[in-house]
Design a protein around this nucleic acid. Structure first.
Lengths: 108, 108
DNA sequence: TATAATAGCTTACATAAAGTAACTAAAGGA
DNA sequence: TCCTTTAGTTACTTTATGTAAGCTATTATA
C-alpha cells in the first residue's frame, strides 16, 4: 500500500496543534501575558484541562510560567519565542476562516 | 473579566483543524484523490474514526466522495476547492516544524 | 454452483480524554 | 478567628477514540 511516510516533525507539530484548546490558548496568549483565571474566562476550557495544557506547553517550551511575588501572589503565563513563532500559522487560519467559514455554519 | 471575544469564524476553523486526524487527513489528500484503504494505511487512524471524519468533512464541503463504477467499484475521496484552500495553513505548519521541532522530541 | 476474496464500511465493546463541581493551600484583610 | 481570592487538584461523569469482529456487495476461483 501507498506508504508515503509523513515527515515526523510535521506530525509532531500537527499533534501539538490538534490537541483540543491548544490553538485557542496560544492565540489568547499572543495578546500578552495572562493569568490562569483570565485565560479560563476567555476561552471555554475547564480548569482541569487548562492546568494540564499549561504544564504540557511549558514542558514543550511554548509557554513560560512566572510567579510574581505580589500580594496576593500572581502567576503569569506568556509565550516563549517558540510560542510566538506560531503566529503565522494562526494568521493563516484566521485568513482562511474569513473567506471560507460561512455565517450558516456558525451555530455551534 | 477580560472577555475579548474571539472571532467565531476563527473559532470554527480552529475547531475543524483541531479534531484529531483531520489535519493529517487533509494533508494526505493534498497529494491527490485516494481510497478509504489507502488513507487508512498512510495515517494511523482507525476505520471507525476515518469513516466518521470523511462524512463530517464531506458535509462541511472540504472533501468530496466519488463512486467510480469500475469493477470492483472504487470509492475515491478528494479535496474540494475549500479543502485545497487549506494548503497554506499546512505549509506554515510544515515550515514551523522544520525550525522548531527538535530531534529529541521525536520519540512518540 | 458453492466458496472464497476484497473493499468499504458498521457495530459492540474497551480505554482514554475532557467536562463538572466540590475541595484545598497560601496569603492577606476584617 | 474567620472570610476572601487565586491557582490549582481530586473524584466522578460524559464524550471521543481505539479494537476487533461482522456485514454487504461484487468478482474470482474451485
Amino acid at each position: 500500500m501507498n506508504q508515503s511516510i509523513i515527515c515526523p516533525r510535521f506530525e509532531k507539530a500537527v499533534s501539538l496543534l490538534s490537541q483540543r484548546w491548544t490553538t485557542l490558548l496560544i492565540y489568547q496568549l499572543l495578546s500578552g501575558p495572562q493569568r490562569f483565571g483570565t485565560i479560563q474566562s476567555s476561552i471555554a476550557i475547564s480548569g482541569r484541562v487548562l492546568s494540564e495544557r499549561l504544564k504540557d506547553l511549558e514542558q514543550q517550551g511554548v509557554v513560560k510560567r512566572d510567579v510574581i511575588p505580589e500580594t496576593p501572589v500572581r502567576i503569569e503565563y506568556s509565550l516563549t519565542e517558540k510560542g510566538f513563532s506560531l503566529e503565522p500559522i494562526l494568521k493563516e487560519i484566521e485568513n482562511w476562516s474569513q473567506t471560507w467559514v460561512k455565517k450558516e455554519e456558525l451555530d455551534d
